[in-house]
Amino acid sequence: MNLPIALLFSFLAMPVLGQHDHAAESTAAGNTAPAPTLRATAQPWTQQPLLLPGRMARGERNTAVLRPQGIAATSVTVYAPEGPPERRKVDYPLGPEGAKIEAVTPKIGNYHWVIAREETPNEVRVASTAWYFGNPGASPKVLLQETKHELEIVPDPLPREHASYRESEQWRFLVRFNGQPLANQPLLLETAFGTRSTVFTNTAGVATVQFPRDFRPAGKRDGAHEDHGLRRAPFVLSTVKEADGRRYLTAFNLSYGEASDRNRSLGWGAAFGLIGMLAATPLLRRRPANHGETHHA
């Protein structure tokens, strides 16, 4: 049994494939990788307004392309965490492929906040997202506190660099109207895998959202995308409020990742299965000897 035991310890010493766990920060500062490029589908997974990544040229670290979906906007607005006053809020026109946005300066990165807006006399619709540029920059804490439009969904906080929201994790989101927190306001979560759930804000206007454990097996054409060793899929949070004869709808979309313990559990399950096989080896070896014995009266 020396060889099987050696194989067992070699197996246990191997790192479990797919583990890429970044602890989520509990303070309002963070970084993350950009959301994945989504495959085109015949039926959209949500009717909420979205800001999705478009095609980008390779090597352009300080630019990105975002395309609105489900909203009739003519431009996108980018808010930067720092920089010259004239660059803290910039409008970018929409072209056939979307809007090409830029970091506040080539040397300043971190999170930028992006919105697309559609306004009529009866309704205001807003799509929002966070985009991370790779260079160092100011914490997004102050940026997130700034009021940018009427009805807002504000992450509290955002994930840090190369991290992500993840399955089964709980994250806080602030809902406010004209800068004031909204209590008992419904917040709808939708994922690309079809999960729908609603939570309500507390008296401080904060809702705690638990991301569902709904990733499908790897390999299926489900819109998931691998980024930094972590499979990600899109989600959107949305809420609606009527005030002064007008309907306000706002949505925040980004991506969330597969739970890190999925592959870890699979690896340990295989290890225990191998241990069981090794434990049965002596019994398998003894059976032929016993079977060949001749008994005499």
Rank of each mutant, 00 (worst) to 15 (best):
Q19T: 14
T191A: 03
L254V: 14
E169P: 01
E97K: 15
Q47L: 00
S10N: 07
R125C: 00
G18P: 02
P36Q: 03
L182E: 01
K141P: 03
K241D: 07
A218Y: 11
L52N: 06
T41L: 01
K241H: 12
R176Y: 01
N2C: 14
F252Q: 07
S164R: 00
G223I: 13
E169K: 06
Q210R: 09
P159I: 01
Q170T: 09
D21G: 10
G229A: 12
V175E: 01
P53H: 00
P186I: 02
A271V: 08
G54L: 03
E102W: 09
R287D: 05
T105P: 06
R172A: 07
V209E: 04
P49R: 01
L237I: 11
P93S: 04
E152G: 10
Y256G: 05
A289Y: 06
A243P: 00
E150C: 09
V126S: 10
N2P: 09
P84F: 12
H162D: 08
G109Y: 05
N253P: 06
S139C: 09
G267R: 15
H291P: 00
V236I: 05
A204N: 04
T77M: 14
F193Q: 11
H162V: 10
G59N: 11
R246I: 03
H296F: 05
R287P: 07
E86I: 03
P85A: 09
H162P: 04
Q185P: 00
A24C: 04
W45P: 00
G134A: 13
R262T: 04
L283I: 09
R88G: 13
V206K: 02
S75Q: 13
F252H: 12
A192L: 06
G219D: 14
W171H: 14
P288S: 01
K148P: 10
V104I: 07
L254N: 15
I71G: 05
F173M: 07
A207M: 05
R286A: 06
K241S: 07
A280T: 15
P140L: 08
Q47W: 00
A35D: 00
A233P: 06
G273H: 02
S139M: 08
H20W: 06
R247H: 10
N263I: 00
R39M: 15
M277P: 09
F215Q: 11
T208G: 02
G98N: 12
A233I: 15
E190V: 04
P81M: 04
W131L: 13
T198N: 05
